[in-house]
């Protein structure tokens, strides 16, 4: 494993889906793409965002798995379900705070991002982070990210009262030390002040 770390910066994403296409080229699940790419609310905005597995320190997906089918490697990568064990119950799909695992109906099993274990375990970068043209997904050293980016990498999250620590970092403005997750809608984000900056018609009126 290289000393690289994975950094996500949702806000940079341009929705090109290179990550989605490249994910399906990774040998551990070639032909099936594991990454999620969300269009947030196309009517209102062109915002899109990727979601890979965050590789939690104490993965909730694994805790709620009745078959004990989700394991972490010594280097902290949470693997796809163990095939002889997974019974396709979707507990993990429904419990992961980041909405990561995918239930594959054709094989009745869960599959998820394993950070391109075939690549990262031999010192290569994961597929998505190699191709991503916007740097929304980046795999590099901590020094490099601190040198080149505004903001700071953070890997602590709060969902309700649940604190989750992840191997993957998210880029946030300097003063932030933890991402406290509350429910937001696009219309209620600060980005929508002054009212709805994404509405071209309103921009023209001002």
């Amino acid at each position: 494993m290289t000393n690289g770390e994975f950094f996500i910066d949702y806000s940079r994403c341009i929705g090109c889906e290179a990550c989605v296409q490249a994910c399906g080229e990774c040998d551990t699940h070639r032909g099936v793409s594991m990454i999620h790419l969300e269009t947030i609310e196309r009517r209102d905005s062109v915002q899109t965002a990727p979601q890979i597995c965050m590789h939690c320190e104490d993965p909730i997906c694994a805790q709620v798995c009745p078959a004990d089918a989700i394991k972490k490697t010594p280097d902290g990568v949470v693997q796809s379900s163990l095939k002889p064990r997974c019974i396709g119950c979707s507990n993990c799909v429904m419990s992961c705070p980041f909405g990561v695992p995918k239930y594959q109906i054709d094989i009745d099993q869960m599959m998820k991002c394993d950070m391109c274990y075939d690549r990262t375990s031999v010192g290569k970068k994961p597929m998505c982070a190699t191709v991503c043209p916007s740097g929304a997904l980046t795999f590099t050293t901590m020094q490099d990210i601190q040198r080149t980016r505004q903001g700071v990498p953070v890997n602590e999250w709060r969902f309700g009262v649940e604190i989750v620590r992840t191997k993957v970092y998210v880029m946030v403005p300097k003063e932030v030390t933890r991402v406290d997750v509350d429910l937001v809608q696009i219309a209620t984000t600060a980005a929508a002040l002054p009212p709805d900056p994404y509405d071209v018609a309103l921009m023209l009126e001002s």
């Binding site: 889906e17 290179a18 296409q21 490249a22 080229e25 970068k125 190699t130 191709v131």
Partner: peptide
Amino acid sequence: EDFPFNRGKLCPKGVK
């Protein structure tokens, strides 16, 4: 990744 212009980056057309 060693090609200086795109350093391994690609868009979906390049990937496929």
